[in-house]
Amino acid sequence: MPTTDTTTVTVRIPTPLRSATDGQSTVEVDANTVDDALRTLTDRYPDLADNLYNENDDLRQFVNIYVGDEDVRFGDGPETALEPNDEISIVPSIAGGCFHRWRVNA
């Protein structure tokens, strides 16, 4: 349930996603938790949603969310509570390589 007592935080946007935020590298949102902040962000900039969330509406596996220097995955996850002036960072982890998975038809 929405509350009137929300916190203003800053979200840092990685370079390739700034085309979805009118070129802004940081966006201020009012939110009480990390999940609130990201949902508010994607409501305001809908083109971000597909980049952050998969078809099950979960954060994509390579998307890591930090509050300050802390990876929220090692804390309370999306329910991490926010303090005024917290900085949220959207941080990709990257993998790949020339390895091919061989697909076997069952």
């Binding site: 085309s19 390579f62 990709p92 790949g96 390589g97």
Partner: peptide, 12 residues
């Protein structure tokens, strides 16, 4: 590779 495609992060 297919792995590169599956595990790539953001377009751009």
């Amino acid at each position: 590779s297919e792995t590169d495609l599956e595990e790539a992060p953001f377009p751009g």
